[in-house]
Design a binder for these strands. Structure first.
Ligand SMILES: [Zn+2]
Ligand SMILES: [Zn+2]
Ligand SMILES: [Zn+2]
Ligand SMILES: [Zn+2]
Lengths: 143, 143
DNA sequence: GCTCCTATTGATAATGATTCTCATTATTGT
DNA sequence: ACAATAATGAGAATCATTATCAATAGGAGC
């Protein structure tokens, strides 16, 4: 996981400015992995009601380009974001929306290299039903 | 891989009709894995110029619901389709667009079950640069 | 094969996510 | 503090996908 405290320096190193909006969005992403753009926007407005949705998308794109954050679909048709971290599998419950991060049980880079492939980014997801939801239907959040 | 020849029976078994459009789209998907909706639409028009884009999307949704086909992002922000088959990893070259199917090197269902998770569908992808593109820039298709 | 019932289709409007445009604002170097 | 200009906010524009609805065509029964 990238150190939040090093981000201002990281941005300046890339010739980018350190704005209050970028600091706020980074804080939200660090504290709440797997949110989508709209959810991040809503939380951001709670702190700074003047922030615009375009800024959220622009910032997400910038941070993803810098490999500071990663995006993934998580079983839906739009992106969800989290700070970049070691390769992991997302177990996504289609009933309650819960997302569990689990380390990948093999060496991904080596796996690609063995096929003459230089992996830059990985997305592993398993969509299904979690314990709670299988036991008691509607047991989780999303009914 | 699901047998193309059994599809008409499969559709009827689900109470669905076997239309010329569905037959055509299935043929295209079987023959060309990993196409997106627009690409499938273009190929379909080549055979039946009267087919509509809505029919393509409706049919893709139906076939995916029946678990006849699977969708995946393949590093882009929209869906690509292929006949349902055993779990596999997609190695996607971001330079030339090439997609390679490789078997998953571990038991996915067991992996999920071990975490109390009942996996219904998997999406594994590795985005990076293929042999050809690393050797000779612009060596592949998409320059 | 012919007819009827209704699922399916085609055209297009509508929606949702994301990107673009441009005037205004705010960060950074001096 | 000041100037230069990158970043923001608001809204238009674009792209992928879904919904609507009148017209069409599978397919069960005759
Ligand atoms: Zn659940
Ligand atoms: Zn995660
Ligand atoms: Zn390539
Ligand atoms: Zn594949």
């Amino acid at each position: 996981m990238i150190d939040r405290a090093s981000m201002p320096a990281r941005l300046r190193a890339e010739g980018k400015r350190v704005t209050r909006e970028r600091e706020l969005l980074l804080d939200i992403i660090v504290a709440n992995p797997h949110l989508d753009a709209t959810e991040i926007f809503e939380r951001a407005r709670g702190v700074n009601p003047r922030i615009g949705l375009a800024t959220v998308y622009r910032t997400l794109r910038l941070l993803e380009t810098l490999a500071v954050i990663d995006s993934s679909g998580l079983g839906e048709d739009h992106s969800h974001y989290e700070m970049h971290q070691k390769d992991h599998v997302h177990l996504v419950c289609s009933e309650c929306g819960a997302v569990l991060d689990v380390p990948v049980p093999f060496d991904v880079r080596a796996f690609g290299r063995r096929r003459g492939f230089d992996a830059r980014l990985t997305r592993f997801e398993l969509v299904g039903v979690c314990d709670a939801c299988r036991a008691e239907p509607h047991g989780g959040r999303r009914p």
